[in-house]
Design a protein around this nucleic acid. Structure first.
Lengths: 369, 369
DNA sequence: GTGAAAGCGCTAACAG
DNA sequence: CTGTTAGCGCTTTCAC
């Protein structure tokens, strides 16, 4: 398709200079009705379309914004990307998408590529916003950009969930349901500051609430292996009655694994997720989770980038405590006498009530089936 | 960031011509060790990076491939896009992504935009491959491209699931489980040739199997409204014992709706989905469905586009019957005596056995709670 | 109202 | 080995 018509061809065919052709085609500047007609006819006949690359070179603007996210297989990022895209498209911008697959090395490569492509702005989620080579490069080049899902580095803004506070809310939920011994289940713990912040927020609030420090279980994937890992984990920590999974898929996978291990959710074990993906409400038991609004964050971050480009006032980032909400669900139930098998009744056990033994023995029974 | 260094700046600083600078920076053509050093130093000092825009203009190639899909909120497309992206990135190509939100009008707009951007190729899923203005434009401009998920138009190739055959396999599954009266639940039926092909394939096989023609229920969204729609639908078609949903989300939503209507799945109603998304195996009952491999298709389509660009032999599209497989699941159960409440026993009802009355009465009982 | 020409960043052909 | 130059498609002065 190298033989596409250029504006020169159009001008030639219309019998005029390229400037005139440019003027009428862009409807900028004067032109006689006659010329107008001739140019339009020529453009039509040649099936002419402007080349943005010529334009970009001339204007040093590409009307393209780069977007770097870990993976759109995760609906959280997919939604955010779509939200941003809608904003961009609406403003006449295109989106160059790069998924890093959670690899920090490809982050820097992606940034370089986008800068080479002269994108007008960049929207990105990095592994660790405090220490990101890619982010440094962007700053050095002063490319308009906005972070997404990363906690804002000092003095910066970011469209993100307050992972710390949200995780604390999960601890609260466990506390209110009388769970004192919990676990934290994480994927990509090392490569993601999000997971770490969630762990920290959770652990801190657990401490404040007088609960035991959460036991940590890191996994590499949410596939079949999880069942074995979970079994070992629960065997090593028999006192656990609740698990906070760092995202909903993991939570769902944990529920499935529990089912295979004959552990009743929420009877024997309560599980809480994070993200609020759609399917969480379709399953039985429904998933208790932190609901976030990725689409809104993506759109907001997109608008922020656009505002940096055209110098207008950036939209306000949402209040930290409005970036999430806790959604109750069937996967989290109060730890009460019914969930014990020792027959003892404790209507309102205090948060630090050592209910561990009962939960433990209950589960162990199941294990030994 | 308009003040980025250009190759001219580098040349100037290195005290040489731009050609020399270009040669050493690209490692193309000869250069003395001395010059080499000076140029590298200059580039380094200026933090120089090539501008792809200048390059593109000069080479009339952008190393960018456009990708048009309905929505990456659907994991099927998200996976396909990621599969394609991996291939592109690996070959040094970037991806410009446009989601059309299932709007046919935005398809043509997207195509125009991509052509203006001079993408080297296009990967796309259109609403109807037989009649797509966007696709026509692409062909007219002879842009290397590949269809994805659309049935191939005459004489063309496409990386897609054989929707027709896959849907027929669903009919087979229902038949083998003695269901004779089924429904087809569709979303975006009008704007998607995929949904239509699935319906046709399903209906045809139902006929071949001596089953009743499937009743059609079209919905606009898979949200809460579905429950009411489903209730009306089942009331209007009391003989139904199985529903084939045109995608897994819809199937999951249908299961949830059924739960709310006190209809037992699969006891009163069997449900089969389409796509094979991950969560289908995490839920209880697990979802019987058609498993597809979006990532593979996306990667294949991506390679096809690349091969068209560099003139190499395109990869073979998979055999039609290898683009899907049926996965049994708890949401589809045989229609047997146990699923009836009239007490009659029929060990092996023939496919056209009118089991309708019993299934109907069973469900009606529930409705009237 | 119109056109010639410069120049955006880069590469490649051609002289030196 | 190295520098000059033309030109990719476009917009935009600036004369006419």
């Amino acid at each position: 398709m190298g033989q596409a018509a250029t504006i020169k061809d159009v001008a030639q065919r219309a019998g005029c200079g390229v400037a005139t052709a440019s003027r009428v085609l862009n409807d900028t500047g004067p032109a006689s009705a006659e010329m107008r007609k001739r140019v339009m006819a020529a453009a039509d006949a040649l099936d002419f379309q402007f080349s943005d690359v010529g334009r970009s070179l001339q204007s040093s603007t590409t009307r393209t914004i780069g977007c770097i996210v870990p993976s759109i297989e995760n609906p959280v990022y997919a939604d955010a990307v779509q939200g941003a895209q809608a904003v961009f498209l609406n403003a006449g911008y295109q989106m160059l998408l790069i998924c890093t697959n959670y690899s920090v090395e490809s982050e820097i490569h992606a940034v370089r590529t986008l800068i080479a492509k002269q994108v007008d702005g960049i929207l990105l989620t990095v592994g660790d916003a405090q220490n990101s080579e890619g982010l440094d490069l962007i700053r050095r080049r002063q490319v308009p950009h906005s972070l997404l899902f990363n906690a804002a580095p000092a003095g910066q803004r970011s469209w993100s969930v307050d992972d710390h506070a949200a995780a604390a809310a999960v601890a609260d939920a466990f506390a209110e349901n009388n769970h004192a011994h919990t676990g934290f289940l994480a994927l990509n713990f090392l490569s993601s500051d999000r997971a770490r912040h969630r762990y920290e927020g959770f652990a801190e609030r657990c401490a404040e609430r007088g609960m035991a420090p959460p036991a940590l279980l890191e996994v590499d994937d949410d596939g079949l292996d999880l069942t074995a890992r979970l079994q070992d984990f629960l065997a090593a920590h028999p006192e656990l009655t609740g698990i906070f999974a760092s995202n909903d898929f993991l939570a769902l996978a944990a529920i499935r694994s529990a089912r295979r291990l004959f552990i009743d959710v929420p009877g024997d074990l309560s599980i809480v997720g994070f993200d609020g993906i759609k399917v969480g409400q379709m399953v039985e038991p429904s998933l208790a989770t932190i609901v976030t609004t990725p689409r809104v964050l993506g759109a907001g971050a997109g608008e922020t980038v656009l505002s940096m480009i055209d110098g207008s006032a950036p939209p306000d980032v949402p209040q930290k405590d409005q970036t999430f909400s806790f959604r109750a669900g069937g996967s989290l139930a109060p730890l009460t006498a019914e969930s014990k098998d020792d027959g003892k009744v404790a209507a309102f056990p205090s948060p630090d009530d050592p209910t561990r033994k009962t939960a433990k023995s209950n589960r162990r029974d199941q294990h030994e089936i």
